[in-house]
Amino acid sequence: MVYIDIQHREVTLKLVYYGPALSGKTTNLQQLHAAMTAHTGGELVTLDTRDDRTLFFDLLPLEFETRGGFKIRLKLFTVPGQVIHNATRKIVLQGADGIAFIADSRVAQTRSNNESFANLKQNLKDNGLDFNEIPLVIQFNKRDLPGIRSDAEVKKLASRGKEPVFTAVAIEGKGVPETFQGLAGLTWRRLDGKFNFAERFGVTQADFLERIAELFSPQGGT
């Protein structure tokens, strides 16, 4: 759940990267971390296991200030994608403000994507979150591999839902910032409607998005 500290003029958002095993959630975070080295409030916390699979979660903390001196902290989490780690996934999902679903574009992975998506719905429900309410973006990752769904197919699938859909090659960093910006923007819009940040703290949507974009600039920033 979004954490608003009125005294210190601070707001903390929790964004979760969800998806099937080996779809590139951690890679997304690593690429974001690499692209924002000048701005991250902390190191990427990752617990690499022997075979490079996420066991618990990865955490990338980001923070920046808006024009009015309002501090925004973003906590980016990944969940472990393997089916058996559902308990961990459920805990990490607790109080999420926004979700990026990282899907594997390969046709052969359709089932894993569908299962993970159903699992997301179930875990949201178990955490008392409404699937239809929570900001959600979808990323079709691994666009560089053979045997993937074509762009036309992705477009067709995308048109079936209301969620913004991005394509990516996370390992090369392609599409990673776009997905993140899409997620951050969507989350902010949803929360702004609920808490009215613009009126209460003087932070506008445009200002927020501008700061987010600045995170990717090579130097400077706040």
Binding site: V107, T110, R111, N113, N114, E115, F117, A118
Partner: peptide, 16 residues
């Protein structure tokens, strides 16, 4: 048919 049994979720399309 696909090798796996049918699944309730098909957001990401049909299986091969």
């Amino acid at each position: 048919a696909p090798i796996r049994r049918p699944f309730e979720e098909d957001f990401f399309g049909e299986e091969v």
